[in-house]
Nucleic acid binder design. Sequence first.
DNA 1: TTTTATTTTCAGAAATTATTGAAAGTTAAG
DNA 2: CTTAACTTTCAATAATTTCTGAAAATAAAA
Lengths: 168, 168
Amino acid sequence: MKLEDAKLKYIHTWGSLATNWGINKTMAQVHALLLVSTKPLSADEIMDTLKISRGNVNMNVRALIDWGIVSKELVVGERKEFFIAGKDIWELFKQVTKERKKREIEPVLKVLDDLKNGVEENSEDAEEFKKLMNDLSSVTTTVNGILDKAIKADEHWLLSNFTKMIKK
Amino acid sequence: MKLEDAKLKYIHTWGSLATNWGINKTMAQVHALLLVSTKPLSADEIMDTLKISRGNVNMNVRALIDWGIVSKELVVGERKEFFIAGKDIWELFKQVTKERKKREIEPVLKVLDDLKNGVEENSEDAEEFKKLMNDLSSVTTTVNGILDKAIKADEHWLLSNFTKMIKK
DNA sequence: TTTTATTTTCAGAAATTATTGAAAGTTAAG
DNA sequence: CTTAACTTTCAATAATTTCTGAAAATAAAA
């Protein structure tokens, strides 16, 4: 397989994977393209490679910047903006985890808590419901804690500690 | 808040959360409904509560069974099928994790491996690409390993061990 | 076997989400 | 200041996903 074909295959695979995880296909493709690129790319280059409109590039690049995984890069002698994606994959994982935690996990904990505390009733049914909210909250908190630790950890450290911990 | 309102709020919140994670809203709502229900429910009851069609109930209940988080329950003297969701939330988390791992993580590892090995070239660019595929693969494998451990673990055991590990 | 209850399927419709492209907005160069 | 290069916005449209509902299939009861 030629290098360029492999790069394109990676871009497309990543795009279709993203849809499974509730992430816009084009956004994932733009990120993948910047990741495999050896130099910063302009909006025009992204448009041409992915065959998408200027508006689409603009929106998705902006979203990626908002997620903290793409940044603007100045190129001397050029007026246009260029973009790059960080090449440290463990950092990438941590950043995405951090954002999803903030955007999607923490709000859920809040709702579960409100639901648990919002019901005054003490019937058997109500107690069962409160227990359920509590269990959901407890599991979510456990997962959240693990993710928090992962965000602060070094990849190798995390894996080796985790492995040790499990073997005990 | 009345108990019934809290249950409905939970069902709706769960539905909208699901869309963030690439899960069909109705599927999440059906699961949430079965989870808060104190008795097995028939297709008709699900239709009425969620105001959705018979076909939609059928498709989503079947998908939930396929995910291993809902099951059929026979009710004596009734000809219809009834459905229940397991109430053990840690089990639910483990089952969902196991399925997503199988459906979404493992295929990615395969693709990354193919891409890494499929490029014969040895230019600087090609080596950089292979390193990238390798890094993606390494992080994914680490995460996969942690999830594997979580799937086999008991919640309290995991949480307490994790807490200890964090404090070190 | 025939009837009746129930479940399944799936083509078309509806709803949602993503994309385009052109106009408006910005910013830097001349 | 004026012009040209570039970026942003967003209403219209396209693509995708989900849902409906009625017909076909299945299975239990009569």
